[in-house]
Design a protein around this nucleic acid. Structure first.
Lengths: 254, 254
DNA sequence: AACCTACTTTCCGCAATGCGACAATAAACG
DNA sequence: CGTTTATTGTCGCATTGCGGAAAGTAGGTT
């Protein structure tokens, strides 16, 4: 899982993806906008863009390049490849209905947490989290839940690779704090976060563990104020825990 | 929108994506499996795979390469870029609840229909349709609905580019049949298909048209038997039509 | 209409890069 | 331990991708 630098990089492949990522970052861009963002001569950039367009990965609408749905197609396949996704869908729906909140299915890849699926309850708040987004494990309730049930070596690897950047005022920044937090999560069986993402959102999460592996986590997010209520919090913890159990069973006996 | 062949292809970019597509098609594959599928020497293939892995687009788990969730990330962005997606979500849910069937949001890209979102009702059948899948326009209810409200020139372009392959026993195969079908759809305001996908599935679809553009279509799919019931069919047509109207309004006054 | 300015596409010749054949190592299997 | 199979590394050559510059387009302005 360490990012071993390969000894013979295919430069053009790297460049192609850099361009794709730039188009994404700018959320669609014209040729000229891209010239200043991409480190390549105009003619070169032009060739890449037209190649990608010809292959159907970019589309051009009134002068502006956009990611095409070929990526959505590939992305959907990538998601389906995670067994937890198929097994979690119906459970997520139930949890969203019963909690009224936003419910997320999270998995871990390359040392980061990824938002894999979402189900919105009727009181759910729109946060700026996005499906597919990659986030540091140590600053999410779900991320900590997953780390807590992984091996200590793995946790070390992750910290080694990504560090412990301070994403919010109260996020963990040292290995000791992290170890303590993970220990507590292991005891309780769930994780909890205030200020999951800077703006007043709290979350509770339960890990999904089966066949001696961490498959992912189920998380519920809602405004801090609501979750500070003792009874409410208990209910949500109950919900993520049973949800996780349900999914674990399906994963075990599939 | 025609697939103009660019005069200076970046070979390596094409190859990189070919490899990605191959990994997807095989649904994950080992190095050796890939050697026989990809037209490149072993050392070359190796370099591409390792480059893609280093960049985080492929991951390798016990010897097998898989698409990573970076693609899911890109794909989610590509989907969000379609305004209809944001505006349709809640409507789709309602339709799924009220119909109990599978409801699809479809859009068109590069002359093909794409499955952009799905909402399952409680009686919904699992078909082999997949989010992100690209399908010919002429053989889907939703595809015909979209074509019916596009310009005749555009319809010609699409037929020119993709032809009218016979996907199911009753699918349209000539331009005349297509023209007649589209005319009927324009009159009625909705499209209907038996054998949407070979296996006994029917569908009704209504186009989403606003600001003089076709944004996409809403479709409901369910077993032929159920939809042959006159009353049931009427209800579903009513549902896709009002759904489409609702979305059109949001698109107009956003 | 002519001119201008900004943006996009094509042309050109050179050097670096990506290439496959082959070699070396590592893992699987008897 | 030997044999086969799978994966990674080396090398030198030809191709391909490269940037610079020029040509072509489109939209405005006088």
């Amino acid at each position: 899982m360490n990012p071993d630098p390969p000894n013979r990089l295919i430069h053009s492949a790297v460049r192609a993806f850099e361009i794709v990522e730039t188009v994404r970052r700018l959320d669609g861009a014209t040729f000229t906008e891209l010239t200043s963002e991409v480190d390549a001569s105009e003619s070169t950039l032009y060739d890449y863009l037209e190649t990608l367009r010809y292959q159907g990965y970019l589309s051009k609408k009134d002068g502006s390049y956009r990611l095409s749905l070929r990526f959505f197609d590939l992305g959907a396949s990538a998601r389906e490849a995670f067994p937890i996704y198929r097994h979690a869908r119906s459970t997520l729906e139930t949890v969203a209905d019963e909690s009224g909140a936003a419910v997320w299915l999270m998995v871990e890849e390359a040392g980061k947490a990824v938002y894999l699926a979402r189900e919105m309850g009727d009181q759910a708040i729109e946060t700026h989290e996005r499906l597919g987004k990659h986030e540091y494990l140590h600053c999410l309730a779900s991320g900590k839940a997953m780390l807590a049930f992984s091996s200590a070596e793995y946790v070390d690897e992750v910290v080694e690779r990504h560090g412990l950047p301070k994403r919010t005022p109260e996020s963990i920044t040292t290995r000791d704090e992290l170890a303590a937090a993970l220990e507590e999560i292991r005891e309780k069986g769930y994780a909890m976060n205030e200020h999951e993402t800077a703006e007043g959102v709290s979350a509770v999460a339960a890990p999904v563990v089966a066949n001696d592996r961490v498959y992912g986590a189920v998380a519920i997010a809602e405004p801090i104020a609501r979750m500070r209520n003792e009874e409410r919090r208990r209910k949500l913890i109950e919900l993520v825990s049973t949800a996780s159990n349900e999914i674990e069973l399906r994963l075990t006996y599939e």
